[in-house]
């Protein structure tokens, strides 16, 4: 996608989040351009999830502002936020499917809240989303407890896509999946991102996923965010970043030399 677009999809300026005396974010800035896949990386407790919750409007920050597609989100009332919530889809770390609803009912829930469609259309659209994420139609009437881990992630993705949002937030989309399922999920995500022209923001610890999918990476270190391309960030001298990208774990990717997937083309570029 283009590097410069008039209004970025997400813009976070001077974000401050404090819990008691513990400062999580102190003047954090983050910009995500439309159509890119942006990875958020950081150590445990560095405030990745708090950042995500702030962008989603689930948490009011102490200071700073969040803009979604140019519209200011911070300081809005619940009612004003309601409309913006149809503009993005979210998958949570553990799926967060509603356990008392079937998969298709889970996908229909956002539709019931935001759209006034008749039941037949709703069923057809929900089934389309379920098929789109690679689940079978026979899975649609199953309850979350009957699904495997990978299927839960896919069902959560189907629910996130229920309203055809241009923005997609994923919290640890491949955690808890075996490497093959994770790779399948990544390629599904990239297909959908390309075909639906989504802007994707994901929190992930999975280096595989980062190298396969992300255009740019934001690393939360020292309560701020350092943003760069994969090649740029992995040559950053900050010790945590060095340990993350150049540790034993990362060595097998040859992250230093060519921070692009093996086919030589950065994804989404």
């Amino acid at each position: 996608m283009m590097a410069t677009v008039a209004t970025p999809a997400i813009e976070v300026r001077g974000l401050v989040n404090r819990f008691g005396r513990q400062v999580v974010h102190d003047g954090l800035d983050m910009t995500v351009q439309t159509g890119e896949v942006f990875g958020i990386v950081g150590g445990s407790g560095s405030g990745k999830s708090v950042l995500l919750r702030t962008i989603l409007g689930l948490h009011q920050p102490q200071a700073g502002e969040v803009r979604l597609e140019g519209r200011k989100l911070t300081g809005l009332s619940e009612q004003e936020l309601h409309g913006y919530k149809a503009r993005y889809g979210v998958t949570f770390q553990h799926g967060a499917l509603f356990s008392s609803l079937t998969v298709i009912q889970n996908v229909q829930l956002p539709m019931l809240e935001h759209l006034s469609l008749d039941a037949a259309t709703r069923d057809a659209l929900a089934l389309l989303k379920i098929r789109l994420v690679g689940l079978a139609e026979s899975d649609a009437h199953k309850y979350p407890s009957q699904l495997s881990g990978g299927m839960v992630k896919r069902a959560a993705l189907a629910r996130a896509l229920a309203l055809d949002p241009p923005l997609l937030f994923l919290d640890e989309p491949t955690s808890g999946l075996d490497p093959i399922s994770a790779a399948a999920f990544d390629s599904l995500l990239m297909d959908l991102q390309r075909q639906l022209k989504l802007t994707v923001v994901m929190i992930t610890h999975d280096l595989d996923t980062i190298f396969r999918t992300c255009n740019r990476v934001g690393v939360i270190v020292d309560r701020k965010m350092l943003t760069d391309t994969l090649a740029g960030i992995s040559s950053n001298p900050h010790p945590w970043i060095q340990a993350y990208f150049h540790g034993e774990r990362a060595a097998r990717y040859g992250a230093v030399d060519h921070a692009v997937p093996s086919d030589g083309v950065p994804r989404g570029a």
Binding site: R131, L132, A136, E137, H141, Q195, L196
Partner: peptide, 20 residues
Amino acid sequence: ELLHLVEKTLAEGGPPVPPT
């Protein structure tokens, strides 16, 4: 393109399963 995507998505896979 999206028309293709819808076509492809709904074409693959077995016949629809009615709720039992």
